[in-house]
């Protein structure tokens, strides 16, 4: 059973460590807290553990040690079947976009609403409006294999936010697109954040980080924090 008490932080990591198998720790004693409506960026060189940290966040794997609290719930105490309801409160954009190839852009974006049991008629206007907002108004019926990298990225972002999640998690969202498109995406994230969504982005591209964002530097599995100016 998931509790929804009044919470001061959406996410709390307390001395979290992660290792794959018997290897060395990828993350060591990672502790941080993310307030609702905050804009957070995790930076660091390739292989620093950014993607692993995000995987812990969106419940793709369990930590080797430490405590993760999500929306006030100690996730180590959650039974497997309770996980999907937490996942529905998070929108995730992965590096490979994870679009279903035989479904149109529209159907891919509508997927979170569909699995919640909503009827097509109830979400049709919302999906169309959102697709126009992310600049895919003319690509509604297109199939993912016909989209460019930037279009796939925006479709994945639209799918991540269509269910109005409390948290948006994006892993290297600018990795496959040009700088202009990257800047446009960050403006999109800033706009979402202004509407109340907590943003967590892993990127090595620090030039695009907006003012006032919390920056977490991850290096050799250790995390340090600063505020962008």
């Amino acid at each position: 059973m998931i509790n929804t008490p009044p919470i001061s932080a959406h996410v709390e990591f307390d001395r979290v460590g992660l290792r794959y198998g018997r290897g060395a720790e990828i993350l060591s004693d990672v502790s941080f807290s993310l307030a609702p409506g905050s804009f957070n960026v995790i930076t660091g060189p390739s292989g620093a553990g950014k993607t692993s940290l995000l995987k812990l966040l969106y419940l793709h794997m369990r930590p080797s040690r430490g405590l993760i609290t999500l929306f006030g719930n100690d996730v180590s105490q959650l039974a497997g079947p309770a996980i999907p309801s937490l996942k529905r409160r998070m929108g995730v954009v992965l590096q490979d976009f994870s679009l279903i190839e035989h479904l149109s852009v529209f159907d891919n974006v509508a997927l979170p609403l569909r699995v919640m049991g909503k009827t097509p008629q109830s979400y049709q206007d919302d999906v169309t409006t959102l697709l126009k907002w992310v600049g895919l108004g003319t690509r509604i019926h297109a199939l993912p294999p016909t989209l460019s990298g930037g279009e796939k990225q925006r479709a994945a972002i639209a799918r991540a936010i269509i269910g109005k999640p409390d948290i948006l998690i994006a892993d290297e969202p600018t990795g496959n697109i040009d700088r202009a498109m990257g800047a446009r995406l960050f403006r999109l994230f800033t706009e979402l954040n202004r509407l109340g969504t907590t943003i967590i982005i892993a990127t090595h591209d620090t030039a695009l980080i907006p003012e006032g964002a919390q920056i977490f530097n991850l290096s050799a599995g250790m995390l340090t924090m600063e505020l962008s100016s």
Partner: peptide
Amino acid sequence: KRVIDVLHQVGADMNY
């Protein structure tokens, strides 16, 4: 597998 992964990612219940 792809469909299963994506459904899991967007929070589909196991029964769904």
